[in-house]
Design a protein around this nucleic acid. Structure first.
Lengths: 195, 195
DNA sequence: AGTATATGAATGAAAG
DNA sequence: CTTTCATTCATATACT
């Protein structure tokens, strides 16, 4: 039914400075990382006890308790909870109701209660700078994407790049001096990684 | 791109799975790599269209379209954009360090020598309401389980999930008025890099 | 083969 | 709370 494979794995094959009680060499490491006991306790609070919204007082208490397992500050505890909450929520958001039957980009008026749907604009040659050699100049100013109800992909074909050569934007009535360089930086990266 | 040749950092070769129950199959290679069509489409979005900040909904949409070219998940798309943005930023930051013009920036980083203590403010992000009697109030309009008096840690062992003894933090010992307001000295070393 | 690099993945920290 | 930035780890691949 659905081709997606929902996996919520944890992938903890990460570095977790194995030092059981002391890390944080002065000067060389400026970013806190939980020691294994600290991480175990924090996870125990979050997952096992369902404790997800610590107050500042509770953060202090947790931090104080965790200090015996390594250097830690209040803000570390605060950020830890905040990040975990945010990322779990993000994960749920990404995996919910994938429009399998085709993505529909309909504006439901504006009755969406918490509609954070922003579509991209496919600005063909509107705000891109070009160098003298024709290469793109990556001049992103301050704003990322305009809000415009445009589909990401024009159809369920296979090409975003190939298809837009025949659109009216690129080939037709562009009355400007510059060209729409579609072949800007195709070889910047290695491709053909895997077959 | 920092050739770490003479790094003397002590990095324990880790691989200690902390959770003790999550055993990933060692045989399956689970690192996604974009297929050439996927990579072409992603690059087309990023470079040609300047599309660099996909929302979660758009990530889903991109992922859906890319699924016909190979196995892919939402988080792959998410990470792909994040990494590409980060690495372009990083490259730009390296390039402006060229000692050609002679404009060298000296920044006296205030080392915040009292940062070893917990001198941060945790009130900026969490809003907690206190009643007139000093009792803690609900901190969210939701239904997450209330944890008011919080016997977080029973004793100075490490038993979060076991017995909990009453720490009497919020229940009776909290007088109204002693509001923890520390100083929030989160050093923001963040220079102008997004220009 | 060993090393360097490219890049996926993870996460602490910060901004909005 | 949501989104983004920065840094780091992990590893497949390219290079010498």
């Amino acid at each position: 039914m659905e081709p997606r494979t929902l996996q919520l794995m944890e992938q903890q094959t990460q570095q977790q400075i194995e030092d059981g009680g002391n890390n944080q060499a002065a000067g060389t490491n400026n970013r806190w990382a939980p020691t294994p006991p600290q991480l175990r306790i924090l996870k125990g609070l979050y997952y096992d006890k369902g404790f997800k919204y610590p107050t500042p007082e509770q953060i202090q208490e947790i931090c104080l308790h965790l200090k015996q397992y390594g250097q830690i500050e209040d803000k570390n505890v605060f950020f830890w909870f905040q990040n975990l909450k945010a990322r779990e929520r993000q994960k749920l958001k990404e995996f919910r109701n994938v429009p399998v039957g085709g993505s529909l980009y309909l504006n439901f008026g504006s009755t969406s209660s918490t509609s954070t749907d922003r579509s991209i604009d496919l600005n063909f040659g509107s705000r891109v700078g070009y160098g003298a050699d024709g290469s793109i100049m990556e001049q992103r100013g301050e704003y990322h994407q305009e809000i415009e109800t445009l589909p990401l992909f024009p159809m369920h074909g296979e090409d975003i790049l190939g298809n837009m050569k025949t659109t009216s934007k690129g080939g037709g009535g562009y009355s400007g001096g510059s060209h729409i360089s579609l072949e800007l930086s195709l070889n910047s990266y290695r491709d053909a990684d895997m077959a």
